[in-house]
């Protein structure tokens, strides 16, 4: 439905007391859903930050391997490095 059509139909809503209460009730629902979305957004940001850390660490390790080990090529993935570190510790 295009917005103009809504506007055209809108006068069907009584803008007296009753209409305002009904609107208030629906606004409550919308507000709470939006608050939920906002909370979700902050959680998503934290997840992205944590993922960024992981990505950076993986990049660093791949670079290190490519530079230091001559026998081992860059083809060896980070998973091996992680496993190696896990064994060492």
């Amino acid at each position: 439905m295009n917005p103009l059509a809504v506007l055209a139909a809108a006068p069907a809503v009584p803008y007296d007391k009753a209409g305002r209460y009904v609107a208030a009730a629906f606004i409550v629902l919308f507000a709470i859903v939006l608050i939920y979305v906002a909370i979700m957004a902050t959680k998503l940001q934290r997840l992205e930050r944590d993922l960024g850390d992981i990505n950076r660490e993986l990049d660093r390790r791949q670079r290190e391997q490519a530079e230091s080990a001559d026998g081992v090529g860059p083809a060896v993935g980070a998973a091996t490095a992680a496993a190696a570190q896990e064994n060492a510790s």
Partner: peptide
């Protein structure tokens, strides 16, 4: 919303486990 919440929580744990494996317990 329930599905979103469960997906978010599971993701958070998985990333947490990943961080621990890669960056050590201090991370």
């Amino acid at each position: 919303i329930v599905k979103y919440e469960i997906a978010q929580k599971t993701l958070t744990w998985q990333i947490r486990a990943l961080r621990r494996r890669l960056l050590g317990d201090d991370a």
